[in-house]
């Protein structure tokens, strides 16, 4: 075997050892990172028997809240807790379930996000709030849907036919897709974001909308009975028989009505 051939084989061997070590090191690092991530997160799942028209109340500090309906007479609560882990003890009362992360951690200051997913019967009333984070609620037809983000987070309410709806945030979009019930009340307020309301064409409601930016689009729901105040910053009027009451306020964003 010539000297040149030996050098070439030695080089090939070194290259293989190097690449194998690199792969092993990468796998170790990925494994360590995975272990760290799983250590930093905790998962909790609990189930509670419930009536058809149960009331669910959730007060979170930070994190996403998702509420969905399902065809079961029980509540399933799933939560992912980031470090430093927040404490919470769900309390089941006669008419529902209360989860108060805010109250259970008062004075602790810095706690990690808690991302909640709640599955509830379709006729449930839901009252959820968080200091920070998105709220998504879908397919509910109970008495109340309240979604309140104290600071920033988008609110999406889809497939909602509740008789009272309140959605409020400071920074973030609000999207409502549902129906206004006869005699129902609907309030939407954002400090800075776009409010979009998607409802059936035959909806009847009395509207009071205030939007200093004048970015207001009522689309096909507009009629000549509407009163414009403050040079286009406020609108009042009835659509159809005005059977439900709708109040929309947006300080620095837009208000748009769409036909479903």
């Amino acid at each position: 075997m010539s000297t040149g051939s030996l050098i070439a084989r030695y080089g090939f061997f070194r290259a293989r050892v190097f690449s194998t070590s690199t792969v092993i090191a990468f796998l170790c690092l990925a494994g360590a990172l995975g272990a760290t991530t799983s250590l930093a997160q905790q998962h909790v799942t609990k189930r509670y028997p419930a009536r058809k028209n149960v009331r669910v109340e959730l007060k979170n500090i930070s994190g996403t809240i998702t509420v969905e309906s399902w065809a079961r007479d029980e509540i399933k609560l799933s939560a992912t807790l980031e470090s430093p882990t927040a404490n919470f003890t769900p309390r089941q009362s006669g008419d529902g379930l209360v989860v108060d992360v805010m109250g259970d951690n008062r004075g602790r200051g810095d706690v990690g996000d808690v991302n909640f997913k709640l599955q509830v019967p379709p006729d449930s009333s839901v009252d959820v709030e968080t200091r920070r984070g998105d709220i998504n609620i879908s397919n509910l037809r109970g008495g109340l849907v309240r979604a309140h983000v104290s600071s920033e987070g988008d609110i999406t309410l889809a497939g909602i036919t509740a008789s009272q709806v309140i959605a409020q945030n400071t920074i973030g979009d609000i999207f409502f897709d549902g129906e206004f019930s006869r005699g129902g009340t609907y309030q939407f307020q954002s400090g800075q974001g776009n409010i979009t309301i998607r409802i059936p064409a035959d909806s009847g409601f009395r509207l009071v909308a205030a939007v200093p930016t004048k970015k207001f689009a009522l689309g096909q729901f507009w009629n000549n009975g509407f009163k414009t105040l403050g040079d286009g910053r406020k609108y009042m009027g009835d659509v159809g028989d005005g059977r439900s009451s709708v109040t929309v306020t947006n300080f620095r964003g837009s208000i748009t009505f769409l036909r479903r």
Binding site: G109, R132, G191
Partner: peptide
Amino acid sequence: ARWSPQMRETFDRNMRVIDQAVADS
């Protein structure tokens, strides 16, 4: 002082939005 830096930033950012709305009015 007890809050995380992210929570402080969130609060300040949101307060600025409201203060701007107050100033506009």
